[in-house]
């Protein structure tokens, strides 16, 4: 249970087409992440799947059934919102019980399911409090709890971690991944953070301006980005690009090298540059180098590399890790 299929789905607001017709298959049990810069239509796409927005054209099927005209509640999907959207006037228990109450389950059944969800998510200790009395992480758990009790065909997450601080975000990321391992339910997750996408996804869908740029597993996207956009979006720090003469040596319009695939030396190499800023993180060192041609390069190197502002370095790329792109930005295979 839990496969979703989008066929020629498009969405316009008035005359503005935010999502041109697209096709996408989400398989049963998969963890799919929609990622892209803000305004790329990823949240809209999720809301189309949820039924909170009507599609302008195309069909959405869930488990092989056409769900395009079905109301949100009847699609059997559960959603976790960015703001968590907890009901502030209800206790945690009532929040979690709400969907069950709406489904008119009997009270004993509701209690059993709520208690089970509370146990799974470790929120039994604050089950009688109101959302206003909870921390961000606890609210997040309640929102997930409210989604779990419905035993949905698929979970939809709309940037659920963006309101949490960095440390908590890492924790919740792990918890959501673990939840997926345990429940094996399809999850569709929207984020603008490529780290979240890389760490959690079975399948990443990269979107730009409503268009799917590439679909694939995290490592596929890392190793074989379909174009410059995906190449620069996936991976941190960003891939470095250089065009012109240096690129034509490789029969390409542009070549890209990831910061972790650059070697450097103090004596000689193909690209000469000056260190602007050196960030020493301990485990790694990032060097921001300005090349002679004016290009800005980021270099990732070992933690104990001693470089400082103004040092001259010579960079070269690991030949097997050079990405080549044509004049349209498409990868050359």
């Amino acid at each position: 249970m839990g496969s979703i299929k989008l066929e020629n789905v498009s969405k316009s607001f008035g005359t503005v087409e935010v999502i041109p017709p697209l096709n996408l298959d989400i398989n049963e049990g998969e963890f799919v992440v929609f990622v892209g810069p803000s305004g790329c239509g990823k949240s809209t796409l999720l809301r189309l799947i949820a039924g909170l927005e009507d599609v302008t054209s195309g069909t959405i099927s869930i488990d092989g059934q056409d769900a395009t005209e079905i109301r949100p509640a009847r699609r059997g999907l559960a959603m976790v919102f960015q703001s968590y959207a907890l009901y502030p006037h209800m206790s945690v228990r009532k929040n979690i019980a709400f969907p069950l109450k709406m489904a008119k389950l009997d009270q004993a059944e509701i209690d059993r399911k709520v208690n089970k969800a509370a146990e799974v998510l470790n929120l039994a200790s604050y089950i009688d409090r109101r959302p206003g009395q909870l921390s961000g992480g606890q609210r997040q758990r309640v929102a997930i709890g409210r989604a779990i009790v419905r035993e949905p065909k698929a979970f939809l997450f709309d940037e659920p971690l963006s309101n949490l601080d960095a440390a908590l975000r890492v924790n919740m990321r792990l918890e959501i991944s673990e939840l997926h391992q345990n429940l094996k339910t399809t999850m569709v997750y929207v984020t603008h953070d490529q780290v979240e996408a890389m760490t959690m996804a079975d399948k990443i869908v990269v979107l730009r301006a409503g268009v799917i740029e590439q679909v694939g597993s995290p490592l596929e996207l890392y190793r074989q980005p379909a174009n410059k956009f995906v190449a620069s979006f996936i991976g941190s720090p960003k891939m470095n690009f250089i065009d012109g003469e240096a690129a034509s040596k490789y029969q390409a319009h542009t070549i890209g090298v990831r910061p972790e695939h650059l070697r450097f030396s103090r004596e000689s190499g193909p690209w000469k540059g000056v260190v602007g800023v050196a960030e020493h993180l301990g485990s790694d060192t990032f060097l921001y180098v300005t090349l002679e041609g004016g290009e800005q390069f980021t270099v990732r190197t070992v933690g104990n590399a001693e470089f400082h502002h103004g040092d001259v370095v010579y960079l070269s790329a690991e030949p097997e890790n050079i990405y080549r792109f044509d004049e349209n930005g498409l990868a050359i295979k």
Partner: peptide, 15 residues
């Protein structure tokens, strides 16, 4: 009142 809360209710099956 954030619209997301009403949407959550809609997803939760509220008429």
């Amino acid at each position: 009142i954030p619209g997301e809360i009403l949407e959550a209710a809609r997803m939760d099956g509220a008429t």
